[in-house]
Amino acid sequence: MDIVNDALTWFNDPLNWTGKNGVVELTEAHLRVTLYAVLLAAVVALPAGVWLGHARRGGTLGVVVANTTRALPTLALLTLFASAGLFGNTATVLACAIFAVPPLLTNTVTGLGDVDRDVVDAARGLGMSSGRRLREVELPLAVPLVAAGVRTAVVQVLATVPLAALVGGQSLGTIVVTGFALQNYGQVLAGGILVAGLCLIAEGVLAVAQHLLTPRGLRESSTPSRGWRRQRGEPSAVAVGAPSGSNSSMPGA
């Protein structure tokens, strides 16, 4: 286990933690780039998603956007932007923002679009205007899915940022890429542990945050509209279509 020892030695060297390109500085850079990228994506995707979901349109658009970006390699965008003259972390922020748009957009559109039509109808019957319906009925009901989208986007960007080290961006990925260049596998392993740790911790923290953000009434099930309908005992058409776990609770089964 030479490499593990090398990694431990690397972790034990205070010079690797402080100062220029130390773990502290690189973690800060990593988080800063992630924040900018997610904010940039949110500024574009959230209003667009709210508008499309409120109008109950754009379901297909979301799927198309998601599928296209899935096929586009991150490395392609990074190298394209970097060699197009965007230096350092600007290319990283832009590329990561583009990849953060689909989860935000699709989750917002689905979240608002999946709000039970009966509920919206009831709000309309109470005399609520379109804007008030959106603010007081649709948005609160969509919070769980939108929050899930934000969480996916953040974790995905945190995981993408390290790649930018290949094109000169600064992040925890720098440790890994430099390690590979120096053929110092202890450092590679240490960098891998740091990057993986950051993402796993972020995922855990955001899961808790998502739970806290979700209105209490919606916490029971992860798929709000379906669970909500089931509680009200809607007839079997829904229950048959429900894919998982609902078989045992079916009245006729």
Binding site: L158, G173, V176, F180, L189, G192, L194, A196, C199
Partner: peptide, 16 residues
Amino acid sequence: VLYTIPSLALFALLAP
């Protein structure tokens, strides 16, 4: 959990 580990980190953990 495996899916959450970034690709660069996973390659870094495996490569040694």
